[in-house]
Design a protein around this nucleic acid. Structure first.
Lengths: 204, 204
DNA sequence: GATCTAGGTCTACGTTGTAGACTACGCCGT
DNA sequence: ACGGCGTAGTCTACAACGTAGACCTAGATC
């Protein structure tokens, strides 16, 4: 059932995930689902648990920086596979055991890496913000194909009066032809910025 | 009407903001609202516009770092006043003129500060992630009063098996008695981390 | 064979956004 | 003064939502 739910949400987005449709997907009445799940919120919590479990832990022998970097990248991979995950996470909060486990692990990594509890606390928040903050929404590319002329014209009209944004959009679209407007580079840039900053704090 | 909508959402959260209830608030039938608004999404877009306009621009004579810091702090103030704003922003995207204006301004600030277009692009994403990433949700304090014994017991039970989180929660609640678990310090910490990192990139 | 239970179905309630028809009031040019 | 018209509001209705509650059904257990 959780698997089918994830698959449905991946196909149609979170907004088509209703109990009725999910039941239909499983060839079953909507109310039958409530034999396995207390409520829809309960189902969403289950979703989060399974998705967080998809985040592979990084190798234990790495130092704190590599370990955290690996965790962040892995988390990002999962959120790319399931773009609706962030919204569900935000709506449902962060109190499940899977998430608490990851937080505990991150705190342990930081503690073993020589961070004070206070600094680890700050680091946790900054890294969480990095992972869950939304980046890729602005000017999402809507696929690899060239936009139709009228769409491009509408975009250009919308950006009239914003010269710097226009410039940036053009540059990005040029890169896009080459390397698909690589968001991973973007993500890693900010992540390393944060990690380097934390390291400098640590050795102070 | 926008004012009443903001006030209703501030009072009851975004989930009680329905067209019927808003109409009731204004002493008017729900459908009357559609004379002023194309749809509820349109209304939400209007909300974003007014709230973004609440973000006061920082003084123009400051250098890039102070200017961006001020903008980020001002944005945070608004999001603290209207906690439901982030969710609406995420659901509705970032294509309104108010937001585009802020982005344009930030890009101009960065450009005048000597950043390349590429670096400014990265900086924009990192700062956006900082501002919109959620931090304060984890262990939200539920007010200044001490929690009732059974709530505290439930929290302690939920955190059994997570020693580092427990330690952190206790430390945070101690600070909480003193200074209310100051989230502003948290926010500023990450913000300065990012700004300092950007500065180092710039002078490279 | 009687009973219990896990799973599924059907109906119904209250809520949501909103389309569409209808109504009442103020401003317009003639 | 008067017919027409736009503007604002009401009422009804529809499809979709989460889910409570009653009912059914087949297999396991005593």
């Amino acid at each position: 059932m959780l698997r089918a739910t994830v698959e449905l949400a991946d196909r149609g987005g979170i907004e088509v995930l209703s109990m009725r449709r999910l039941g239909q997907e499983l060839g079953v009445d909507a109310m039958a689902l409530y034999r396995h799940v207390r409520s829809k919120d309960d189902l969403l919590d289950g979703l989060i648990e399974t998705l967080v479990a998809e985040i592979l832990p990084s190798h234990a022998d790495a130092d704190w920086k590599a370990a955290l970097r690996g965790q962040a990248m892995a988390a990002r991979q999962v959120m790319l596979r399931h773009p609706w995950m962030r919204r569900v996470l935000e709506e449902r909060g962060t109190t499940g055991p899977a998430i608490l486990g990851r937080i505990e692990l991150a705190l342990a990594t930081l503690g073993d890496g020589g961070f004070s509890l206070d600094l680890a606390h700050h680091a946790l928040h900054v890294l969480g913000s990095r992972i869950f903050g939304f980046n890729q929404d602005l000017f999402e590319d809507s696929g690899p194909e060239d936009p139709s002329p009228e769409v491009a014209a509408a975009a250009a009209r919308a950006l009239a009066g914003y010269p710097r944004i226009t410039e940036l959009a053009q540059a990005a679209s040029h890169e896009g032809v080459l390397g698909r407007c690589d968001d991973d580079v973007e993500f890693a840039f900010g992540l390393d910025l944060v990690l380097d900053g934390l390291e400098r704090f640590r050795t102070r």
